[in-house]
Amino acid sequence: MKEQQEKPRIDLGNLKAGGFIKERGKDLFTVRLRVPGGRMAVPRLKKIAEVAEKYGGEFVHLSVRQSIELININFRHFDAVVQELGEAEQQVASCGARVRVPVACGGCEYNPNGLVDTQKSALEVDQRLFGAPTGHHKFKVAFAGCPFDCPKSSTNDVGFQGALLPKLDKGACISCGLCAKNCTPGAITMGEDRKPLLATDPCIWCGDCVKVCPTGAWEAKQTGYNVRIGGKWGRNPLVGTLFATFLPEEQVVAFITGVLAWYKEKAEGQGRIRLGDIIIQEGPALLLNHLRQQFPHSVVAATVPPQVIDTQVGVRGVQPWQP
């Protein structure tokens, strides 16, 4: 009974970025952990298991955005949980109207499909932009290493998808035909001279031709990210649309920062509204122009607003953009 009478002292600084989410039960919270790109060092995993066993319920929850969530944490234990997780450099994640922890696929170090280092990008964005308040609504970022797009990048406010532009050194080609056979969209056909021909239209920049080519005749002319903006899920889903192609990996943080600045300015006075709805209101050309000043080589000439999915229930509360 003594514990109940004690006034709990809690370091409110720990709660600044969110990550402590009220549960149904009295005094109980879910503690969402910061796991950028879903990569979890084994010693950290051990520490999390230790803390969960000591302070949490009988299980943890693996969230849909690659976090581990500690369940049934009493708010009196917040400081102890934060301090003990900190011993393994494990931090608590963000929630609310902030930049969230980025999601990423396994990347390219061990995954044979990966075209770009999504893990590195996710870590960089997490380090530079984690928890930044948007002033309006949540802001989600995801990195997919190839056009398979396992992380479903276009359902994020800013979604990055790895891409590779191939080029052929005809002299090194042995006319084996493996590239044409491997080209899923059918962009490569074998010409009359038994050398491959690339039609740029159906090419999705997946890099399969480069990966299978026995002699290195197909090589990467350019790699980077295709960027889709304005996606979201939830009550009124939107699919983000293409704003940039082959954005260099080192420009990812600057690009997101540019999008955030535009979002904050245009959403001024509109309260809790997502980026995709702002783009629908303002029209995508304004955002394209804003981004083109800083990223002239990557931003596309034109795009369409984020796409409403016709199969969803209900009428959207925003006025459609009129060209």
Binding site: P112, L178, K181, N182, T184, D208, K211, V212, P214
Partner: peptide, 8 residues
Amino acid sequence: KNVPRSLK
């Protein structure tokens, strides 16, 4: 599609 790439 898969076997040649994996052998490479």
